[in-house]
Simulated assay, not measured.
Amino acid sequence: MSNIKIKSKNLNVYYGDKQALFDVNLDLNEKEVTALIGPSGCGKSTFIRCINRMNDVIDICKVTGNIEMDGIEINDKNLDVVSLRERVGMVFQKPNPFPKSIYDNISYGPKIHGKGETKSELDQIVENSLKKSALWDEVKDRLDEPGTSLSGGQQQRLCIARAISVNPEVILMDEPCSALDPIATAKIEELIDELKKTYTIVIVTHSMAQAVRVSQKTGFFHLGKLIEVGKTEKIFKNPDNKMTQDYITGRFG
């Protein structure tokens, strides 16, 4: 029986007068990959942004309902958002390395969070993070070069290394491969498979094939509602909802 890491109950999100999510109830299991699929603008990214409170930075955004991580309400006014974001890493659609060296890209987070007091501790964190993100062998002799000098696929793995450098429990990925070629995409997918042994991963993807390849559970969103969620195999082979069926067979979307 897998443990539930994150639980959302009747989660609603409003941007001003526009409602973006409607009563979303979704459990995310620990050390498992959950894929969120559905047409553009249907609430997938809005949902994952609730998990690390990225919506806080949008003034007109209002969130109601509950979202809990390990039984603690994420939207609690007294919750320290900085420590939440340390526990919940995020990787975006477009690789966005800092304009710093490869080394500094990764050591930056641990320094801010007070991890790695000495140079040798930081060296170790950088090396471990790059090894975990399958990038170490490609960059170990170039750590002083700018992160932006890497290829797109390498930059995305650098961003994953950066996300895991502070030792999070959850990694959110918002279409992490949509800017990458098939070979780079395959590398990221292999990496996701490896990372799920340690982390709870939520991936928003436009690629159904990718959802099938990397996830154990899939949620289908449409117009801000979670239409159906279940084991990935079931969702793709035998969904309960006709709308899910129509989406995955390409009748709309």
Rank of each mutant, 00 (worst) to 15 (best):
residue 113 H to A: 05
residue 114 G to L: 06
residue 114 G to D: 06
residue 115 K to T: 04
residue 116 G to I: 01
residue 117 E to S: 14
residue 117 E to P: 02
residue 118 T to E: 07
residue 118 T to V: 05
residue 118 T to H: 06
residue 120 S to V: 15
residue 120 S to A: 15
residue 121 E to S: 13
residue 121 E to R: 06
residue 122 L to V: 12
residue 123 D to G: 09
residue 123 D to T: 10
residue 123 D to C: 10
residue 123 D to R: 09
residue 124 Q to M: 12
residue 124 Q to H: 13
residue 124 Q to C: 11
residue 125 I to N: 12
residue 126 V to H: 13
residue 126 V to G: 13
residue 127 E to W: 03
residue 128 N to P: 03
residue 128 N to V: 07
residue 129 S to M: 00
residue 130 L to G: 13
residue 131 K to S: 00
residue 131 K to E: 00
residue 132 K to W: 10
residue 133 S to Y: 04
residue 133 S to I: 05
residue 133 S to C: 14
residue 133 S to Q: 06
residue 134 A to G: 13
residue 135 L to F: 14
residue 135 L to M: 11
residue 135 L to K: 09
residue 136 W to E: 01
residue 136 W to C: 05
residue 137 D to T: 10
residue 137 D to C: 05
residue 137 D to K: 11
residue 138 E to F: 00
residue 138 E to R: 07
residue 139 V to D: 11
residue 139 V to Q: 11
residue 140 K to F: 05
residue 140 K to S: 14
residue 141 D to Y: 12
residue 142 R to I: 07
residue 142 R to A: 10
residue 142 R to W: 04
residue 142 R to P: 14
residue 142 R to H: 14
residue 143 L to S: 07
residue 143 L to C: 09
residue 144 D to R: 13
residue 146 P to H: 02
residue 146 P to M: 04
residue 147 G to Q: 08
residue 147 G to N: 06
residue 148 T to V: 13
residue 150 L to I: 11
residue 150 L to E: 10
residue 151 S to F: 09
residue 153 G to K: 00
residue 153 G to A: 00
residue 153 G to D: 00
residue 154 Q to N: 08
residue 154 Q to K: 05
residue 154 Q to E: 15
residue 157 R to D: 08
residue 157 R to C: 11
residue 157 R to Q: 11
residue 157 R to K: 12
residue 158 L to E: 09
residue 158 L to M: 11
residue 158 L to A: 09
residue 159 C to V: 13
residue 159 C to A: 14
residue 159 C to T: 15
residue 159 C to R: 12
residue 160 I to W: 08
residue 160 I to G: 07
residue 161 A to C: 06
residue 161 A to D: 04
residue 161 A to E: 02
residue 161 A to Q: 05
residue 165 S to C: 12
residue 165 S to F: 11
residue 168 P to A: 06
residue 168 P to L: 02
residue 169 E to W: 02
residue 169 E to T: 08
residue 169 E to P: 01
residue 170 V to N: 02
residue 170 V to A: 01
residue 170 V to H: 00
residue 170 V to C: 04
residue 171 I to N: 03
residue 171 I to K: 02
residue 173 M to P: 00
residue 173 M to K: 01
residue 174 D to H: 02
residue 174 D to M: 01
residue 174 D to K: 01
residue 174 D to P: 03
residue 175 E to V: 01
residue 175 E to S: 01
residue 176 P to C: 02
residue 177 C to V: 04
residue 177 C to T: 15
residue 178 S to R: 00
residue 180 L to D: 03
residue 180 L to F: 02
residue 180 L to A: 03
residue 180 L to H: 03
residue 180 L to K: 03
residue 181 D to V: 02
residue 181 D to Q: 09
